[in-house]
Design a protein around this nucleic acid. Sequence first.
DNA 1: GGTACGTACTTACCAAAAGTTAGTCCAGGG
DNA 2: CCCTGGACTAACTTTTGGTAAGTACGTACC
Lengths: 138, 138
Amino acid sequence: METRGEGTPGLSEKLRRGDVFAEQCPSRDILNHLTSRWGVLALMALLDGTRRFSELRRKVGGVSEKMLAQTLKRLEKDGFVQRTDYGVVPPRVEYALTPMGREAARHVAALADWIERNLPRIMGARPGAEDCAGRAGG
Amino acid sequence: METRGEGTPGLSEKLRRGDVFAEQCPSRDILNHLTSRWGVLALMALLDGTRRFSELRRKVGGVSEKMLAQTLKRLEKDGFVQRTDYGVVPPRVEYALTPMGREAARHVAALADWIERNLPRIMGARPGAEDCAGRAGG
DNA sequence: GGTACGTACTTACCAAAAGTTAGTCCAGGG
DNA sequence: CCCTGGACTAACTTTTGGTAAGTACGTACC
């Protein structure tokens, strides 16, 4: 993200580049969806490949079915997630990242990775406060 | 973010790597703070350098003073932002990224950059729906 | 004298979103 | 009969975000 010069828009500006700092720009909504509490984790959970709803639920510690369903629906609407309903009972539904979703998820995952690797430093190197041995899923 | 093998933790695991999927892991809170609605934009706004409160307010379109203050306080507490109060009236306070905050902000900015560059594609290439010419600040 | 402005917050109250709990439908098992 | 798993949805409660007003003070202007 470079400085946005205030000069005359060049040819590349013709592509209507977004501006997340501008409240009314659609990129703001996209940013909010991708960085939403459960959106971040759902995207990352799908990086490993297609998953069913209940798998995602178990993978993402702390998410409710309601919030997961809501989040996936929104990501699907945005075009980042593809939902496949097999139309059977009990229900069988699978979720997968679209190519665009995969690109977004990689960026999100890079941040999460950085946090996880730097956690001791962030927490001020207090060994007792970082008990993440109990993995949520995976 | 690689697969977290379920095998015996190696020596590197001794460093208590975080796991954002685990609800109780402190990395979850950090992730939520860094990806919060206003946290994302505040971090990015500070990438250009030190700014005063009102500058940030103007730069980040749509944020209220309340939410901005709240967000900056939390980022400061986490160690990503440094606050300098000059103790004068009218108040003069400056905010800057810490080295750690700069690292985090770069990751966040990469995602935002990706969104902005891919906005036409994300919006399905509808030219009429992407009027971001009115820049929020900068 | 008064009002207005900018600064960086804080407070009181309301709106919106998240969270909790229960429910739906069905096949299979005890 | 009840329970389980699956993928949601609805009703209600709790939490967080948003709105509007307030604080204190120096400076500028009428």
